[in-house]
Every structure is written in C-alpha cells, then in structure tokens.
C-alpha cells in the first residue's frame, strides 16, 4: 500500500511543473478556427425560411469576409464575401442580403442575393427572382426565375459518369483513384483562409 502510493505521487509532481502553457493541447486547432469563423450572431431561424437546412453553417448579414472559404457542409451566406468560396460537395445559398464578389465552386448554388464572379455548380444552380449574377456559369443544370438578373455565359456541362462504374484493372495501383479530397483540418465548419 505504502509503496503504491509513493509510486503514484511522483508522476503528479512531474506533470505539475510544466503548467506555463495556458491553452489545452488537443482542441486548440479547432477552437482557433472557430474564433476566426464569422458565424452569425443572429438567430439561425432568421435564415431558415430561405431554405437553409438546420445543419448548414451561415454567415450573417453583418459579416464581411475577405479571403478563401472552404466548407464541408452546406453554407448560407447572407453577408459579404470577397475572395473565393468552395463547398465542393455541398450546397451554397446566397441569401437576399448576400453579396459575393468571388469565384464560387459548389455542388449546388442557390442565389437570392448578388454574385459577381464565375460560378461552378456541379449539379445545378438556381438564380431566384431579384437575384443578380454577373459572371460565367458552368453547371449541369440551371434554373432562372423571372425577375432575376444575369449577365455572363452559361456552359452546360453534363455530369461525368461515376468513377465506380468504370472497370478497374486487376492490378490496381496503390494510390486511390477516387475524386480528389480537399484536405482541410476542419471537420464541418467552413474554414477561412486569409
């Protein structure tokens, strides 16, 4: 018993001295990104009527972002963005107050506000009434509502057949041949680079 207690105590003493580091080690990268991410302070319910799902991130109308945004979940933008926005596997919605002066790449884009920049929407793009889009569009499908303003070119790109449908040779290479995966640390929230 005595011996055991003495064995347990020393490690506590060795662990205690290095406390000068104030921040906890494990969650720091995620938390710092959350601090940078300008998530809206407005209630989420305000954006939902326009079609944003509960799981989407949102940038509120009082927020301006200059830089690059990579999102791994649906993103709703009602603020202002200058730079680039990528949500390759997800839906990007530009709210009625949203102003995006940026190149945009997403699986699906819904514009209710303003986009100035080229847009690549792999699946489809919707330009709703009163939306304004100035830029070139590459997409598989486009929906333009009456009352929308659009200036630019439209390239309809038929979606390529899935890679899985292709016959795989017997001696497959070790390197995976699937679609490129964006390697970013954040596991859900949009990441913003300056």
């Amino acid at each position: 018993m005595w011996n055991k207690r003495r064995d347990e105590e020393p490690p506590k003493q060795t662990y205690a001295p290095p406390p000068p580091s104030p921040a906890p080690v494990a969650p720091s990268p995620v938390e710092t990104k959350k601090e940078i991410t300008p998530v809206s302070s407005m209630p989420i319910g305000k954006f939902e009527p326009q079609g944003s799902s509960a799981s989407s991130a949102s940038i509120g109308k009082a927020v301006k972002v200059v830089g690059q945004i990579y999102s791994r979940e649906d993103l709703y933008v009602d603020g202002e963005i200058e730079g680039t926005v990528e949500a390759l596997e997800h839906k990007l919605t530009i709210g009625p107050n949203g102003v995006v002066r940026a190149g945009v790449k997403a699986r699906e884009v819904v514009a209710l506000g303003t986009i100035q920049g080229n847009v690549e929407a792999h699946e489809k793009i919707e330009i709703r009434k009163d939306a304004k889009l100035v830029g070139d569009i590459r997409t598989a499908r486009i929906i333009i509502e009456d009352g929308a303003y659009f200036k630019g070119s439209i390239d309809i790109v038929k979606p390529e057949p899935k890679a899985a449908a292709k016959p795989v040779p017997a001696a497959a290479p070790a390197v995976p041949s699937g679609p490129p995966i964006v390697a970013h640390a954040s596991a859900g929230a949009p990441e913003i680079k300056r």
Partner: peptide, 25 residues
C-alpha cells in the same frame, strides 16, 4: 432578359449562351 426557356432551348441544342440584359444596362 435571361429566361429559363431561352437558356434551356439554346443549351439543349448544344450551344453556349451569353446573356446580357441590354435594356437593363
């Protein structure tokens, strides 16, 4: 004015469409 019908019709023919809302400008 860019309309759904014109965009669909012309792109379905395999053409690339440029839209410029001339009167608005």
């Amino acid at each position: 004015v860019a309309t759904q019908q014109n965009v669909t019709f012309i792109t379905n023919l395999g053409h690339r469409l440029y839209a410029a809302d001339f009167l608005q400008i």
